[in-house]
Design a protein around this nucleic acid. Structure first.
Lengths: 187, 187
DNA sequence: TTGATACGAAACACTTCGTTCTGTATCAGT
DNA sequence: ACTGATACAGAACGAAGTGTTTCGTATCAA
């Protein structure tokens, strides 16, 4: 890709995430992004059809990274009353979020973030299915499989949001334990 | 209240909910609401400071009704492996939604509905606390109380959303059973 | 009937949006 | 180093929306 393109694209992404940490998605205008990124109006619309597509592309970049690395991990053991969460993918995800992906956390804690939440859940779903489905854990339950997957996914996202609203005082290990305590009894 | 005021307020509410069933909240302009409601621009801003406040007032009216009636119900029995969900408040809520409150369902299934979701959860939380807290069910768990309340609340909202995405093919009784199966094992 | 007030219509200045034009600077490939 | 391609900035555009103000009219409660 052209160096100029890469530079502009990055400048816009950085400006956008920076603004998102300050205010709501809806309250951010294209003009502000342009000004912050120090980029011409033409350039913005050459890269992104609209503000929504900018968010979409940003999400794909963020999640493509974090989920793909999690996909490569060995599958932990998930059984009721197991209690051991040290090798959970979820623990890995939380650590990754805490250490490297402040962007995602900022997006999660911002308001008017449904679009973002949809991408988060959509990507997370793949990961969860790949984790549980192979073991048949999703079929043993008396609940419909897609209901169960949706429940697990949403619960994890809610858990992260709750963690954030507590200023992440708890350790990733503690949070993983909370989460697994709500999920494992169902499986 | 002045008859004129009541009439205008209702016309605006009706226009708004009607538009919400067609398109996203963000895509609806004040101009459209005014035109649909057949009301002067001045009138709209005399009643509602902004479009967000209109949604807020609408939510308060919708939830004020549904939650208050649910609050007055006798408290059902909630124990693991109970299986009987016939007298659950949640069942009552689902029936009420199915029969009377299409508005709420339309809002729930629309996109860009975070503001609405916040009101839904906020009101639901009160109901859930009043249901479970008295029995000490929220303290027996090894999970923090507010984490648990948040988990239950979010799970119910997600359940309703899932139901909607399935065109409400399942009966309210069936949905209540699904929901309780995910919650009761934790308590 | 009367004074209060909710209303509609129109115009206001302002912001944002997405597009288009023009000229310039930077790119990759020969 | 040369060249054609292209990404860029800047400026201007019409269209649309926002929230406010003014003014005259219609409806209200008492």
């Amino acid at each position: 890709m052209d160096r100029r393109q890469k530079k502009s694209r990055e400048a816009i992404f950085n400006a956008f995430t920076s603004l998102l940490s300050e205010k709501n998605y809806n309250q951010i205008s294209v003009q502000e992004i342009i000004d912050t990124a120090d980029v011409g109006r033409t350039t913005f619309y050459a890269h992104f059809e609209t503000k929504d597509y900018l968010l979409k592309d940003l999400c794909e970049e963020l999640f493509g990274h974090i989920i793909d690395t999690a996909m490569g991990l060995p599958h932990g053991h998930y059984h009721y009353s197991c209690g051991n969460a040290t090798d959970s993918v979820f623990l890995h995800l939380l650590r990754h979020l805490q250490e490297n992906d402040r962007h995602i956390l900022e997006l999660l804690s911002s308001q008017n973030n449904d679009l973002f939440l949809r991408y988060f859940k959509s990507n997370l779903k793949k990961l969860i299915i790949s984790q549980y489905a192979q073991k048949g854990l999703l079929k043993n339950s008396k609940l419909p499989e897609d209901y169960l997957v949706n429940h697990i996914t949403s619960s994890f996202v809610e858990t992260v949001s709750w963690w954030l609203s507590h200023d992440m005082k708890e350790s990733p290990e503690q949070i993983t334990e909370y989460f697994l305590k709500t999920i494992e009894p169902i499986l």
